[in-house]
Amino acid sequence: MFTVGIDIGSTTCKSVIINDGSIIVGRAIVPFGTGTIGPKRVYQSVLDSCGLSRDDIERTLVTGYGRFTFDDADNQKSEMSCHAKGVNFIIPSARTIIDIGGQDAKALRINPNGMLEDFVMNDKCAAGTGKFLDVMAGILNVKVADLGIISEHSQVEVSISNTCTVFAESEVISKLSMNVAIEDIIAGIHRSVAKKVAALVYRNGIVKDVAMSGGVALNKGVVGAMRKELKTDILVHEDCQLAGALGAALFAWEEAVKANRCSQTQKNNE
């Protein structure tokens, strides 16, 4: 039985297909978020990735910022519960999850079953989110996906404010005008994000193991800075960006099993 999970973020759409709640058979990521062609395209892409059609899908569940506006799903859930479920699947030892998304950052605490126990989210501010990194990459004229690799060459990390994206942007421009090495500026940007997000994690309480999910977890510079700020190791899985979609697919599978069981009981009673 195939189920689909779709995570419609503000900048990226992710999708996963699982078979019988245990094996990932399809994956897709498209760089367009809610309100664009992203949701439809990611759905088609994930089906194409494993040669399935919509008729093969038992149930679809959607999560993420655009979850309320996607009509092709059977149900929706918050991204917190979906990331909890997804990370529990790929990193079963994780009890604390850091998810840095396009426009928000979250610290989640989960139980051994992958159930959400508590969470803290960022306030209404882009600092400490993926958007912050997008803006900084734009000023520096580098691809956001390259930020992590470039920062590995940093010799002297510079200090960048984390109180406001616009102020930080001015600071970065000022550093550039002083000919500060771009890798040192990027290392400072990563530390700025890490400091902001670490405050959320500390507020929520750290229970080991700590894992990161979401697209920003692919940035080794941010992960390294988070490790320094939290003074603990952070586990990152290669499917970290797909964790929300994976959790959604797992919830879809649980719902499908429950529905099938109910329908079987009904038939037996008849």
């Binding site: 309320f68 959400l116 989210m121 209404k124």
Partner: peptide, 19 residues
Amino acid sequence: YSEAQFETRIQGLAEIMKQ
């Protein structure tokens, strides 16, 4: 105030209460 943030947080709470 952010509507999307409010919705996400309240839904997260509802899911914890449900479980």
